[in-house]
Computed example of a mutant assay.
Amino acid sequence: MTDSTHAHQMDAIYKIQRHFYDVTRKYFLLGRDRLIARLQPPPGGTVLEIACGTGRNLVAAARAYPEARCYGLDISEEMLASARAAVARAGLEDRVTLALGDAADFDLEALFGVHAVDRAYISYAISMIPDWQTAIHQGIAALTPGGRLHLVDFGQQERLPRLFRAGLYAWLDRFHVAARKELPELIDRLYREGHAVEFERLYGGYAWAAEVGKKR
């Protein structure tokens, strides 16, 4: 079931922004290409982007892994309009499938006709998803045995100047974006046992990256 309030909020934010989103975000959504390079799905595998936005990452993933089948869901119809256009421009409609869906409450079978995926990822979206903990759990639940969930998002700017951190957070707040300081503790507490877990602080803590692998 889609969170209609959050969906309307995202549509309102991105109705105009989606047209120049990728041009502006490439300078500060750091670590996205690193995440894509680390996906490494098996030959003929499947890749899911949760909260796929404009489709920028999905197109990059599909190009990087030409044998993979890619899926993307987003709660915003406005963003999906941009994603569909991006996929069509790239000529990838035969390998990339998009659907309207809530990151915290989705059904792979209903949306895409598949039971599980080999790789899933959430790129700079957990900072915007109200129930972000459930979104992470949903991503892990969607994996095949041996599959991996990849995350990258804003960190706590641990090694960066205090004024920079304050300015960044004030700017992000205007767009309902909140860096999740609880992320490493949550990953460690909920998934360390029974999963293969990695966590890294990138670029002085500007970004945080995590991977959770489902045991076979």
Rank of each mutant, 00 (worst) to 15 (best):
M1S: 15
T2P: 14
D3Y: 06
A7L: 12
I16H: 14
Q17T: 02
H19T: 06
H19N: 07
F20Y: 15
R25S: 07
Y27L: 08
F28H: 03
F28L: 04
L29Q: 15
L30V: 15
L30R: 10
G45T: 11
T46R: 12
T46W: 02
V47L: 03
I50S: 13
T54K: 01
V59Q: 00
A60C: 11
A60E: 11
R63Y: 08
A64Y: 13
Y65F: 15
A68T: 10
R69K: 09
C70F: 04
G72N: 08
G72W: 06
L73K: 10
L73G: 03
S76N: 01
E77H: 12
E77L: 11
E78K: 13
M79N: 00
M79D: 00
M79W: 00
L80G: 08
A81F: 02
A81Q: 15
S82R: 03
A83N: 12
R84Y: 14
A85Q: 15
A90V: 09
A90E: 12
L92T: 02
D94I: 06
D94K: 08
R95V: 06
T97Q: 15
A99K: 03
D102E: 06
A103N: 01
A103M: 13
D107L: 13
L108R: 01
E109N: 11
E109V: 03
A110R: 13
F112Q: 13
V114N: 07
H115G: 08
R119N: 00
S123H: 11
S127L: 04
S127T: 14
S127G: 05
D131I: 02
D131C: 13
A135Y: 07
Q138C: 14
G139S: 02
G139F: 04
A141K: 05
T144M: 00
P145E: 00
P145F: 02
G146V: 05
L149H: 10
L151C: 12
D153T: 07
F154R: 05
F154D: 09
G155K: 01
Q157R: 14
P161Q: 09
P161N: 06
P161Y: 06
R162D: 15
L168S: 03
Y169A: 09
W171P: 01
L172K: 00
L172F: 08
R174H: 14
H176F: 14
R180S: 10
E182A: 15
P184R: 05
E185H: 12
I187V: 15
G194C: 04
A196K: 08
F199K: 09
F199T: 09
R201K: 07
L202C: 06
G205N: 11
G205T: 05
G205W: 07
A207Y: 05
W208G: 05
W208Y: 11
K215H: 11
K215D: 14
